[in-house]
Amino acid sequence: MDEIEELAGVAIAANGLSPRLGARIAGLGAFRPTTVVSNEQAAAAASVEAQWIEQRIGIRERRYGTSTETVVAMAVEACVQALTDAATTPDDIDVVILATCSMPSPMPNGAASVVSRLGCRAAAGFDVNAACSGFSHGLAVADALIRAGTARQVLVAASERMSDWVSPRDRNTGPIFADGAAAAVIVPTDQPEIFPVAWGSDGHRADLITIRPDTGHMEMAGRKVFRWTTNALLPAIKGACARAGMAPADLKAFVPHQANLRIIEGLARTIGAPGIVTATDVIVSGNTGAASVPLAFHALRRSGALHSGDPVLLFGFGAGLAYAAQVVLCP
């Protein structure tokens, strides 16, 4: 039996599974690049004042990947941590989903490279591009795969090099976007710990965040995006809580996409549950695209603000304009 036949046999055997009632997050991992970029550095490039960045956006510093800290390399580092946290191995993973919008090329897909570098024996691998809501979309897909009995364990990674896609001279994007990666291992459970997703998109406004074909740089209508996020997304937040059978006040934490501190604060007020913890990782990480939600989730858990079993609302939103929200229980 040659290698291809052997791997195909492993994959077929792995797919002989039964549907499950639910899924849960068994482990989390994160990778933050080594290069820290201060507001003074970002401000000089964008021809603004350093205090303007903190006052208007709420960011104090961000991290950029080095030449070796690629989308795939950062995803692998985060995945290794998540596998260790979940006490599982690459051989146990049936599917790898990579949420990203910043791969340098559409082919090959990043997930296939992650599968190879991790040494997963027979895992499927595919990318999800829902921009900054990518991790939440990937998590919903992983939950569905496990519930359907298509996979036993799914690794959802989110990795971005947003610094490659913005001009440092553009004050609307340059000081905001940054790089990083995070990952989660999803496994079956008898009682759901990942609750049904509330998601959607507003393609009529997709031109608010685009990549210019002539420059290859992102353009964003910041004020219009701000109004959309703080005014139009409340139904998704309420819908995710309702599908989990909870009220916002039942949550322990709210982890929205780390777009901008002012947007995060506005969404937190919209929820109307002042007692819950709201993630503000954007202050030290910037906007890391699809990686921002799991990076912020990982940071809250590591800080001790969250404990196993705590209900947390994850909420990704961004270009598309796509959004996805779901309540999960902290691993």
Rank of each mutant, 00 (worst) to 15 (best):
Val95Trp: 05
Asp94Ala: 01
Gly119Tyr: 05
Thr89Leu: 12
Cys120Pro: 02
Val115His: 04
Leu118Gln: 00
Met103Asn: 13
Asp92Trp: 09
Val95Gln: 03
Thr84His: 13
Ile97Glu: 09
Arg117Ala: 13
Asp85Phe: 10
Pro106Val: 00
Thr84Ala: 15
Arg117Val: 10
Ala111Ser: 02
Asp94Cys: 02
Ala99Leu: 07
Leu98Thr: 06
Thr84Met: 13
Cys120Val: 06
Asp85Val: 10
Ile93Met: 00
Pro90Gly: 04
Leu118His: 00
Arg117Met: 12
Val95Cys: 07
Val95Tyr: 06
Ala99His: 07
Thr84Leu: 15
Pro108Val: 02
Gly110Asp: 05
Ser113Gly: 15
Asp92Phe: 08
Ser113Val: 14
Thr100Asn: 09
Met103Gln: 15
Pro90Ser: 08
Pro108Ala: 03
Leu118Met: 01
Val114Lys: 06
Asp94Phe: 01
Asp92Gln: 09
Pro104Gln: 02
Ala87Asn: 14
Ser116Ala: 14
Thr88Glu: 07
Met103Pro: 12
Thr88Trp: 04
Gly110Pro: 04
Ser113Trp: 14
Pro104Tyr: 03
Asp85Ser: 11
Asp91Gln: 13
Asp91Arg: 12
Ala112Thr: 10
Met103Lys: 10
Asp92Ile: 09
Pro108Lys: 03
Val96Ile: 05
Thr88His: 08
Cys101Pro: 11
Asp92Pro: 09
Met107Arg: 14
Leu118Ile: 00
Asp91Asn: 13
Ala111Tyr: 01
Ser116Tyr: 15
Pro108Cys: 03
Asp85Arg: 11
Ala112Met: 11
Thr100Ser: 10
Cys120Asn: 05
Ala87Ser: 14
Thr84Pro: 14
Arg117Gln: 11
Ala112Cys: 12
Ala112Gln: 12
Ala99Gly: 09
Arg117Trp: 14
Ala86Ser: 08
Pro90Arg: 03
Ala99Thr: 07
Ala99Ile: 06
Pro106Tyr: 01
Pro106Glu: 01
Ser102Gly: 08
Asn109Trp: 10
Ser113Tyr: 15
Ile93Leu: 01
Ala112Glu: 09
Thr84Tyr: 14
Asp85His: 10
Val115Tyr: 03
Cys120Trp: 03
Val95Lys: 05
Val95Thr: 09
Ile93Gly: 00
Pro106Asp: 01
Met103Arg: 11
Gly119Leu: 02
Leu118Glu: 00
Ala86Cys: 07
Ala111Arg: 01
Thr89Ser: 12
Ile97Tyr: 08
Met103His: 12
Arg117Asp: 10
Asp85Lys: 09
Ser102Phe: 07
Val114Thr: 06
Pro106Asn: 01
